[in-house]
Amino acid sequence: MTGLMRRWLAHAIFALAAFATPLLLSGNRYFAFIAGITFFSVLWATGMNLLYGYTGLMPLMFGGIAGISAYVTIGLSANGWSFWLAMLVGSVAASLVGIVLGLPALRLRGFYFTLCSLVIQTVITLAFVYFVNLTNGDVGISHIPLPELPGGRQLAGTAYELVLATIAVIGVVVLTVIVESSFGRRLTAIREDDGLAETLGINVTRQKLAAFFVASLFASVGGALYAPYVGFISPRSFDVLLSLNIWVMVAFGGRGTIWGPVIGAVILAPVPFVLQDYYTIKDVVYGLLIIGVVVLLPGGIVGGVKRKGRADAPAAVAKQAAPVR
């Protein structure tokens, strides 16, 4: 029992903090909005972590999948569908697209997969711009209505942020369950050496595609909820910069750990708002951050702390059964 409690203690604290934040900030819409955006980032970073941290693939089309889901959801609800049904259909459809877009991962690894995913992301963005009658092109779609709740009320304000907090917590819990399951261990085996994993009897194709489905589900649920929350989307909302920003959160926090990307998202998602008065240098700051992470923090914050702890106490390392990368 204590083991169970200790295992989920961090999750409980995170859930508590996640639910308390919107309630505490409910007096100030601006801060509450920042919290809402941070929840999206936590969800997306957690989803990308499954691919980048645990399967060893860096997908730069992550934002595009979120975008597909957002456009499908909005399109369906504009045609009279209930938002929640539209979101379900949109998310599942975008995740199935995610499986298709993940197919190159079966043949390509490392840089070549990443380049391929960047090409796919560019094609998706171009398609959003090109199919004007579906997406309204570069102008984007504004005045997106808020989701209806049963009983005729609209989901808005603090209630919306609480829904986002719930989704973020569910995302982290789902990732934890996956990582600790045999599915997660198979993915880690594939990350370390997919040839070896194959000879151990792991069906690499199926595992990789399943990982893409789950990670795309994270992306697309976030995308569907993002559109009405912000009220405006355009092809630029889901371009390669979104994918890169999520990647930075994962890498900065520490890929391949449950809490690293969450910490990364919580630290980095509010940065654009803090820099709002200096929005012109936002790109420069992000670029410096990317370079800093690559050069100085290859394991991320959590990875760095872990490594330091191990160096200090070698005896503790022997006890720890955690996989060493």
């Binding site: 860096m58 490392g110 840089f111 990443t114 380049l115 910069l241 890169l244 990647w247 890498a251 012109t280 240098i281 936002k282 790109d283 420069v284 992000y286 670029g287 410096l288 951050l289 990317i290 370079i291 690559v294 050069v295 290859p298």
Partner: peptide, 16 residues
């Protein structure tokens, strides 16, 4: 892949 990400960072800085 490290270089790729690094140069994407340089891209961001220069475009900013």
């Amino acid at each position: 892949i490290s270089y790729f990400v690094l140069t994407l960072g340089i891209t961001q800085i220069l475009s900013g």
